[in-house]
């Protein structure tokens, strides 16, 4: 214990307190490190990847892992490790963009719904209920069926299916915060409704939103990979991880590494976001457990 801990006038900032608790969650801390590393590698792909994502080498087709090709090569002799690194850009972009889109829309709907209540609340929440009535990957498939296959449409599809998750979560928190003393006090001194919603209530919903965003990143990356795997997402020449897996399934038993490495990439990425989400939940808010 340091001197500052004993000093009664020293009050820890909420962020400092969060950081202190978060560092104790070793798994989550390690997961954060893995995520930062994945982000760095994906962002620096042109410099880090040993080969281009589409560079064929017909002298080295379907080769297992070697010193030249650490993760082996595929049917066109393309270097799998390089494709995984380039593919990381796609998976992480899809994850971040779809979660941010779904989160912004969902949070806005949730706050407005919870704050105003009444028929507006009823209407918004019933629509969210209906969206949640389509299980799992189905809403994403429905959206892709409408818009056509392709990675950009996959982003919209996943964002749309994330909206009700965030809306419900934030509506619940908003209902609780609306009754809290500090919001009632702000209201009584004449703070405008917009300011109440976005300056006073919104920050209070953030801990839960951050936790769900991390968990949702994992789900979104998994869903995007699944859609590409079944042929509705990124199309073949793309080094998207799910699409690479789909390529490899014809070569099981002949060249297992084509299937093994993309799967590991998906697993590690999704696991890291899930572990981070778990750790954040423990560190940010005891009530969320």
């Amino acid at each position: 214990m340091s001197d500052t801990d004993l000093d009664p006038t020293h009050i820890r900032s909420p962020i400092g307190e969060f950081w202190r608790r978060f560092r104790k969650k070793r798994m989550a801390f390690a997961a954060l490190g893995v995520i930062l590393m994945l982000l760095a590698v994906a962002a620096l792909a042109p410099w880090v990847a040993p080969y281009g994502p589409a560079a064929p080498d017909y002298d080295a087709v379907l080769e297992g892992p070697s010193w030249q090709h650490w993760a082996g090569t595929d049917t066109y002799g393309r270097d799998i490790l390089s494709r995984l690194i380039w593919g990381g850009q796609i998976s992480l972009t899809v994850g971040f963009v779809s979660v941010i889109l779904g989160c912004v829309v969902g949070v806005a709907l949730g706050i407005i719904s919870g704050f105003f209540g009444g028929w507006l609340d009823g209407l918004v929440m019933r629509i969210m209920d209906v969206m949640l009535a389509f299980p799992g990957i189905l809403p994403a498939i429905a959206v892709v069926a409408l818009l056509g296959p392709g990675i950009v449409n996959v982003i919209y599809a996943i964002a749309i299916s994330s909206v009700p998750v965030f809306a419900r979560l934030v509506r619940g928190t908003t209902l609780a915060l609306k009754q809290s003393l500090y919001v009632q006090a702000s209201r009584s001194i004449g703070v405008s409704r917009t300011a109440l919603m976005f300056r006073h209530i919104l920050p209070g919903t953030m801990p839960a939103v951050i936790v769900y965003s991390s968990l949702r990143m994992g789900t979104s990356i998994l869903t995007a990979a699944a859609l590409s795997f079944i042929g509705l997402g990124a199309q073949p020449p793309s080094p998207e991880w799910g699409a690479m897996l789909s390529d490899g399934r014809s070569y099981l038993g002949v060249a297992d590494h084509i299937t093994i490495f993309p799967g590991m990439a998906i697993l590690i990425t999704v696991l890291a976001f899930n572990l981070l989400g778990d750790g954040l939940r423990d560190a940010l808010d005891q009530k969320l457990r």
Partner: peptide
């Protein structure tokens, strides 16, 4: 927690 993160299609292929 690994099981939750496991891509089902990959598990199937393996």
């Amino acid at each position: 927690i690994s099981g939750i993160s496991f891509p089902s299609f990959w598990l199937g292929l393996m």
